[in-house]
Write a protein that binds this DNA or RNA. Structure first.
Length: 677
DNA sequence: CCGCCTCGAGGTCA
DNA sequence: CTCGAGGCGG
């Protein structure tokens, strides 16, 4: 070997650089600059050279896409910036409503708005990922998960040819997290299935699940054989990234960095522009090389996006406009009645399995009696089925002409199919409920299922079948009993060996460290979902305070009205619930008292504040509750002891008085800044 | 609700 | 090795 190490190193860098250029042209620009044979030749050269100099192999070399060995398990990744979901518009009216809300909100925050510029892009039917680049190197790839944390799938994402292992260009930010959609192009999907059928392997049912499944492989060599592709569409966490002014600029910047974006995205003007785009994408949907299930519109101006903000987990500045769901015909085999956590009785149609919207559907909910009566679904009926709102199968209507002569209307049960308690329907409500409460095993099961579910206490390894056994054998009557289970008890159950039992006990132990809002949600208080639980947790420092709160105090919390407030009071009045809570806390369930810390830390603590005028992002009462929870005193009249006066729109005389007394005056924005920190 | 992946249970066989 | 439960994601 006459070549010096320096020369080899230089050649390696050259090769990687050239291959990088070719990759960029091929994947991102979709405009190859060399024939495949030439590309392969360079890759072979690089491989040979690296083989002779293993010490010069770097992780971002194009030869290093497939890491050496399978990982042993997926680890959890916390998203520094949460991955949001989008609200859906299922028809034109909902879209118009979205546009109207956007414009009104912007006007309310004093923005000069006529017509909104949106960016429209197809909504890919794949699986969302977040990729983290540090100093231009791909260091982490994660699934969306629940939006707050997902799974580390770096080893698989690295194998996707269109994913750059290193960003290109000179202006590379030290930290850049990008969000995108991994999908399997239709051609790749068909080719893969063709080969699978030849080799006797199992074909994929649809491209979306194929893509999602590929990312969940432990062994990256398997993922590498799956024809995956990716489009990027947003930035998450970042350092040293100069945020552009618009979303379209973001997309262009991503592309310059070597991150592939969907070629179909387009700036459009106002709602008419959105609708025109929708129609045009719709007409070429079947010719696109990948599956899409709708169109996404985003307010292009990033300042406006910030002004619009978020509601719960979805941005107010974007919406997904879905294509109408595909529909198919099938036959109703039977109609059953299920009992939910609150005793709600839900009729479910068991169907002759039918392939619709990419999956085989064999069940469809009929929601409640009214729905069942209105649609008049009978056993033996031929029905139109579709998958509504993404996933849930739905009976659209009955084909009455094809009804068998013997078909009779379904009789709604008078007694609970599980515990035989009476079924009652509260005046004015759509649902009928089994009044058995926790006497009803179905409701006990559901309470435990809800308690251990992912967004609640997130107890891994506690599935439905296991909960059924625990309740039926009276090993657990309510959630608190879970923490008393022993390995001996568990191992006697079906499909529970010592390994599973140990895993479950560990998961239970792990779940004890939780958050206030998860715990509240897990309790299963009627009308208290994730969002309300979070709002409550943010507005009460401790569980004791919440349990002692009057309905009036509860209603100061955003999104809590008289009904929710009374449900919460009723829950905490029930002695049985108090016992369960007591037992749960005694078993060691705990959460960080972050609100208390905040009270101490908050710049609001101890300040006397007066609110005047109309606020746009919340009501005055909500602002008041928030401030109180941060330790401030909120009073009604301005005096010289007042620290801050927050002035909304159309303020009263308090504003002038404050100015006269020289009291600090804040606009709504100042308030938001102070309470958000 | 369904498809895909992984893992453990429990059987079979060496 | 096969079966099925459970986790995950849309």
């Amino acid at each position: 070997m006459g070549t010096s190490a320096v020369a080899v190193h230089k050649r390696l860098i050259e090769l990687r650089e050239t291959i990088g250029q070719y990759d960029f042209a091929y994947f991102v620009l979709d405009d190859p600059i060399v024939p495949d044979a030439e590309y392969d030749r360079l890759i072979r050269q690089l491989r040979d050279l690296e083989a002779g100099h293993p010490e010069l192999v770097t992780a971002d070399s194009p030869t290093q896409r497939v890491g050496s060995k399978p990982i042993s398990k997926f680890s959890e990744v916390r998203h520094r910036v949460p991955m949001l979901s989008l609200d859906n518009a299922l028809n034109e009216d909902e879209l118009l409503e979205f546009d109207r809300r956007v414009r009104e909100r912007l006007k309310a925050s004093d923005m000069d708005v006529q017509e909104i510029e949106y960016v429209a892009e197809p909504k890919l039917d794949g699986t969302a990922v977040s990729l983290r680049y540090e100093n231009g190197q791909l260091v982490l790839a994660a699934t969306r998960g629940d939006g707050r944390s997902g799974e580390d799938v770096t080893h698989n994402v690295r194998t996707i040819p269109a994913v750059p292992l290193r960003l290109r260009g000179t202006a590379i930010p030290p930290v850049l997290e990008v969000r995108g959609e991994v999908f399997m192009p239709i051609a790749g999907f068909l080719a893969y299935n063709q080969r699978a059928s030849e080799t006797g392997e199992k074909p994929f049912v649809n491209p979306r699940n194929a893509a999602a499944g590929s990312l969940r492989q432990l062994d990256p060599t398997l993922a590498a054989q799956r024809p995956l592709d990716v489009f990027f569409y947003a930035v998450g966490d970042h350092e040293g990234w100069e945020q552009p002014r618009t979303h379209s600029d973001v997309l262009e910047r991503l592309r310059e960095l070597g991150l592939k974006t969907c070629p179909e995205w387009k700036k459009v003007d106002g709602i008419l522009g959105c609708l025109a785009y929708y129609a045009s994408i719709g007409s070429k949907r079947d010719d696109l090389p990948y599956e899409i299930d709708g169109v996404v519109y985003k307010v292009n101006d990033l300042v406006w996006q910030t002004a619009l903000g978020f509601v719960s987990r979805a941005p107010r500045w974007a919406i997904a406009h879905k294509f109408p769901a595909q529909e198919e015909l099938t036959v109703v085999r039977s109609i059953e009645f299920q009992v939910g956590r609150t005793g709600a009785i839900t009729p479910v149609a068991r169907l002759e399995p039918i392939f619709v919207g990419g999956v085989t559907v064999s069940n469809a909910t009929l929601h409640n009696i009214d729905e069942l009566t209105r649609k008049d679904v009978r056993v033996g009926d031929t029905v139109i089925v579709r998958r509504a709102g993404d996933v849930i199968p739905e009976v659209v209507k009955v084909v009455k002409e094809w009804r068998p002569a013997k078909a009779r209307p379904v009789r709604f049960p008078k007694r609970c199919p599980v515990c035989k308690s009476e079924i009652v329907r509260v005046e004015g409500e759509a649902v009928s409920r089994c009044i058995g409460g926790l006497f009803c095993p179905a409701q006990r099961k559901e309470a435990i299922r809800h308690f251990s579910s992912r967004p609640a206490m997130d107890i891994e390894g506690l599935g439905s079948k296991l909960i059924d056994q625990l309740v039926e054998q009276q090993l657990a009557d309510h959630p608190a009993d879970l923490y008393l289970l022993t390995a001996d008890q568990l191992e006697k159950l079906e499909r529970m060996g010592s390994k599973s039992a140990k895993n479950l006990l560990e998961a239970l132990e792990k779940s004890k460290a939780t958050t206030f809002s998860r715990f509240l949600y897990a309790l299963g208080i009627r009308e208290v979902g994730e969002a309300t639980a979070l709002a409550l947790a943010n507005n009460f420092a401790t569980l004791d305070q919440l349990m002692a709160a009057t309905e009036e105090r509860l209603q100061l919390v955003p999104d809590v009205g008289p009904i929710v407030a009374s449900r919460i009071r009723a829950f905490f009045r029930e002695s049985h619930n108090l016992e369960v809570i007591h037992q749960l806390l005694a078993s060691g369930i705990d959460w960080p008292v972050k609100t208390l810390d905040k009270v101490v830390d908050s710049p609001m603590a101890g300040k006397t504040i007066v609110l005047t005028g109309t606020l746009s992002s919340m009501t005055r009462n909500q602002a008041k509750a928030r401030l109180i929870s941060l330790g401030a005193n909120v009073t009604n009249s301005v005096s010289k002891t007042t620290d801050i006066v927050v002035v909304g729109k159309n303020p009263g005389s308090k504003s002038t008085k404050a100015a006269a007394l020289g009291v600090t005056i804040w606009k709504e924005q100042d308030l938001l800044k102070a309470v958000d920190s």
